Computed example of a mutant assay.
Amino acid sequence: MRDYLEGLNILTDAEIEWLYKQGVKKEIKKGEFFIRQGAVSDEVAFVNSGIFRSFYYSSGAEDVTYCLLFENSFVTAYSSFITQEKTQENIQALTDAEVIVFRRTLFNELESTGGNWLRLLKYFAEAEFVRMEKRFFLFQKESAEKRYEDLINNHAEFLQLVPLNYLASYLGITQRHLSRIRKAMTN
């Protein structure tokens, strides 16, 4: 987490160290949930290791994976975290994971202090918006093959750890279609 925050060039070394000390390390086992649908998000976590998926249930009760989160990223049910309303999403560990958890009250306190803390919170909000917009455009403009290629280019080392049904759901295709894409790319 320290390296990640240093790379942003927003906080001083002392601020990064202080923030790190405010977090609580937590182990989340494969299959366990960081948050479930219907809960209110009051935590954000930095993923030291592991993979998470965010998913929701469609009106037909189908499990739809819409986000994969890898190490060196922050995880939370962002809309619920902001609005303090019940979340529609579930965030589940796909592997054993280690996270550093921060309470929402800490971020509320930091927001009121201004300065670098406000710049950091602004950065997180903007980064979340950009990530979601990129995903939206990728889904609207590109083929499933291109979406899979993008995932390989950015997270190849993790893909073998994501079950195919979740990967296919994330790409918006069937497992059969994903198998065809993978076979075509290896030939």
Rank of each mutant, 00 (worst) to 15 (best):
165 N>E: 04
69 L>F: 08
141 K>L: 15
16 I>K: 04
78 Y>H: 11
62 E>D: 15
115 G>Y: 00
131 R>C: 09
27 E>Y: 09
67 C>V: 06
127 A>I: 03
75 V>P: 02
138 L>F: 10
80 S>E: 05
166 Y>R: 05
28 I>M: 01
155 H>E: 03
5 L>D: 02
45 A>K: 01
19 L>E: 01
93 A>Y: 09
169 S>C: 15
137 F>R: 14
163 P>N: 07
63 D>G: 02
13 D>A: 14
38 G>E: 02
145 E>K: 08
157 E>N: 11
102 F>M: 04
37 Q>K: 12
11 L>R: 13
39 A>H: 11
81 F>G: 11
166 Y>D: 03
148 Y>P: 01
135 R>P: 05
78 Y>A: 09
42 D>N: 10
75 V>T: 12
180 R>I: 05
77 A>M: 04
36 R>V: 07
43 E>C: 10
173 I>P: 07
3 D>E: 15
187 N>D: 08
167 L>I: 05
63 D>P: 03
134 K>A: 12
185 M>F: 14
100 I>Y: 10
187 N>Y: 09
116 N>I: 05
18 W>G: 03
113 T>D: 11
143 S>R: 08
180 R>G: 03
186 T>I: 13
63 D>E: 14
2 R>N: 15
177 H>C: 08
127 A>K: 07
155 H>Q: 06
56 Y>K: 06
73 S>E: 04
38 G>W: 02
64 V>P: 04
140 Q>M: 13
3 D>N: 14
129 F>E: 04
141 K>D: 12
64 V>M: 14
139 F>S: 14
136 F>D: 06
10 I>L: 14
61 A>F: 06
50 G>S: 03
174 T>N: 12
127 A>H: 06
182 R>M: 10
73 S>G: 02
7 G>V: 02
61 A>H: 09
38 G>L: 02
72 N>M: 08
133 E>K: 15
42 D>M: 02
131 R>P: 01
131 R>K: 14
93 A>L: 13
155 H>D: 01
85 E>P: 00
57 Y>L: 15
78 Y>I: 07
74 F>V: 06
74 F>T: 05
140 Q>K: 13
55 F>R: 00
1 M>F: 08
161 L>E: 08
28 I>V: 06
41 S>N: 09
120 L>C: 13
71 E>P: 10
121 L>H: 09
179 S>A: 03
29 K>F: 11
10 I>F: 13
37 Q>T: 09
123 Y>G: 00
16 I>W: 03
29 K>P: 09
106 L>H: 07
147 R>M: 04
77 A>Y: 01
146 K>F: 06
32 E>I: 00
123 Y>R: 03
182 R>I: 08
169 S>G: 15
173 I>V: 15
137 F>T: 12
3 D>V: 10
39 A>M: 12
12 T>W: 15
79 S>H: 12
28 I>Q: 00
43 E>W: 06
180 R>V: 07
11 L>W: 13
140 Q>W: 09
20 Y>E: 15
47 V>T: 02
51 I>Q: 06
69 L>Q: 14
183 K>V: 06
135 R>V: 10
72 N>E: 14
186 T>Q: 13
74 F>E: 05
164 L>W: 10
19 L>D: 00
